[in-house]
Each structure stands twice: as C-alpha cells, then as structure tokens.
C-alpha cells in the first residue's frame, strides 16, 4: 500500500496547531493563538504568513482604539487542506 504524502505546510508543529485552533472557531486573534500555542511572537508571525500566503487562512489587521489587532480566519481552502491532512494521517495510524 502506498501512503499519500502529508501536506508539508501542515505537517509542522506550530502551523498544525494554528490550523487546529482555527478550524474550531470563526476567528481568533494573534495574542490568543500565541497564548494557546505557547509560541514566540516572531515564530508565530512567520508561520501565519506562510499559511496566509498558501491561502489556508486570511489575516485581517485592524485597530481597537490605538491597539493594533491581527485577526486570523481559516479559509475554505484551508478547511479542505486540513480535512485532507487528517484523512491522510489516518492511513499512517491504521494498524
């Protein structure tokens, strides 16, 4: 049996964590994602940029008062990629 390769964009600890968080909610802001993943701001920025460039998430930058706020949402393409990733993952886990 030939295993399907796992999406390299998702098969990374932090990017997979971000996508797993976003799949369950409509949107989440940068600070919340950083807190939940326990990542550094710099690393998280880089990984979010990669997911955004791939079209897996959309990123919106706004201001609440004078504070900048970055909100991330998973896109339809991202949902599809995540579902395919989980499906492909299952073939590796089957006994």
């Amino acid at each position: 049996m030939q295993y399907k390769a796992l999406d390299p964009l998702l098969h990374s600890q932090l990017r997979l964590a971000v996508m797993s968080l976003l799949i369950s909610m409509e949107s989440a802001d940068f600070v919340y994602i950083r807190e939940q993943t326990g990542s550094t701001a710099g690393n998280l920025s880089v990984q979010i940029e990669k997911l955004s460039t791939a079209g897996y998430i959309s990123v919106e930058k706004t201001f609440v008062g004078k504070k900048p706020k970055t909100t991330c949402k998973i896109t339809n393409k991202g949902v599809g990629a995540f579902e395919s990733y989980v499906k492909n993952l299952q073939q590796y886990l089957k006994p």
């Binding site: 796992l6 098969h11 997979l16 797993s20 939940q36 993943t37 989980v86 993952l89 886990l93």
Partner: peptide, 18 residues
C-alpha cells in the same frame, strides 16, 4: 512530527478551542 504526535496536537488544540 510523527503521525501520533500530529493527532495528539490536533486533539489538544481543538479541545482548547472548545
């Protein structure tokens, strides 16, 4: 990540969101 670690990570993050 190993496949098992991936699955654990997904479950953990979805659990946090929920």
């Amino acid at each position: 990540l190993s496949p098992e670690e991936s699955l654990d990570l997904i479950q953990d993050m979805i659990g946090r969101a929920r």
